[in-house]
Computed example of a mutant assay.
Amino acid sequence: MNASSIQAVAQALLHARRSRSPAGAASLAGHLREARDAYAVQQLVREALAPGEAPVFWKSGGPSRSAVLTQAPLFAATTWPSPANAQGQHFNFTLIEAEIALRLGSDVTAAQAAELTHQDAAARVDAMAVAIEIVDSRWTEGVDAPPLLKLADLQSHGALVVGEWQRFEPRDWATQRCEVQIASTGAAEYRGTHPLGDPTWLLPSWLKHLTRDGATVKAGTAVTTGTWCGMLPARRGDRVSVTFDGIGETRVQL
């Protein structure tokens, strides 16, 4: 781990956030060599922008079960209940993801996380909610920036809007219907399109990441679990709504 290179990436991201102007990723592409470098940048940025704040919300996911899943802590200041108004929030880009958020019903220790399997992961969840992630980037290249630089930038996270929590119960995720409405582009329907097949599948990877230094994950900690609709373009002024049949609806005004 090269401390000076990690500091350089963190400072570029902090300057981009504070100046509201994205930074070029090309000159920094070789600064991060592995995922732990990107996670170290996440921590430095978080300590600078929200000192002492323990993350309650996280994002986790990946394009398939065979891929290495990525994790990012989210800021309380950009995690909002639905319906939300984001008109006063700065974004460099606005892409929309329709997601399901999951909430832990009990503490999870490092020892418990180490033994957690995909088969019993859902037993750790007490509630679920419809979520809208606004995808943004502090890199000029946006979502086309190098993967480790995207990971360092909270995996291109902008904001999260969370609907009403519902009691978690097993579902047939393969037939789960989702509808996304964006004012400027209309409505689109998706069914069974979660990239991991089941949003609970990522829980072992996520919890092992959170407990990698021996920490205990507290009950009430929540994770948003990846997009059902890819990344859909949206414009300033758009009203966006996401509905999952049998779970609920979430709305945000951009």
Rank of each mutant, 00 (worst) to 15 (best):
V108P: 02
S4E: 15
G52M: 05
P199Y: 03
P81E: 10
G24S: 15
F75S: 15
S82P: 09
C229S: 15
K150Q: 15
D107E: 13
T227C: 04
T78G: 01
I182Q: 06
A84Y: 08
Q176R: 11
L148G: 10
T70M: 04
D136P: 10
T193L: 08
L116C: 04
A86N: 05
Q176W: 01
D238S: 11
E115V: 05
A187P: 02
F91R: 09
S27C: 10
E47A: 15
T79Q: 07
H15A: 15
A215V: 05
G226V: 04
L154Q: 14
W80I: 05
V180G: 06
T211H: 06
Q155K: 03
G24P: 11
R212P: 01
S184D: 12
A3L: 11
L207E: 07
L207G: 05
T109K: 06
G220T: 09
E115I: 00
E133H: 08
W206N: 03
V252T: 13
V143T: 14
P199N: 03
D153N: 12
T175P: 00
M1K: 04
A25I: 09
E179C: 11
L14P: 06
A174F: 00
R17G: 14
H90L: 04
T225D: 05
L202C: 13
T224C: 13
E164K: 13
L95Y: 10
T193D: 13
A50N: 04
S64I: 06
D107V: 10
A111C: 03
A121I: 01
N2F: 01
V125Y: 03
G220E: 07
A54Y: 00
C229V: 13
L196K: 05
H118M: 02
A219M: 04
G237D: 12
T175W: 00
K150I: 13
F244Q: 06
I96D: 08
F244Y: 12
R124Q: 12
T211G: 08
G52W: 06
A219R: 13
L69W: 13
T70L: 13
R167W: 00
S5M: 01
Q119C: 00
A152L: 06
E141A: 15
S66P: 00
A127V: 03
L207N: 05
S82Y: 08
V108N: 02
A129N: 07
G230H: 02
S64K: 03
A98H: 01
S64W: 04
E164I: 04
A183D: 15
P147A: 14
D198V: 02
M231E: 01
A84G: 11
R239S: 15
D136C: 11
R236T: 13
R251F: 05
S205E: 11
A35L: 14
A86E: 02
A26C: 03
A114T: 06
G197R: 01
Q89M: 14
V161P: 10
L203Q: 03
W139H: 11
L104I: 10
D107I: 10
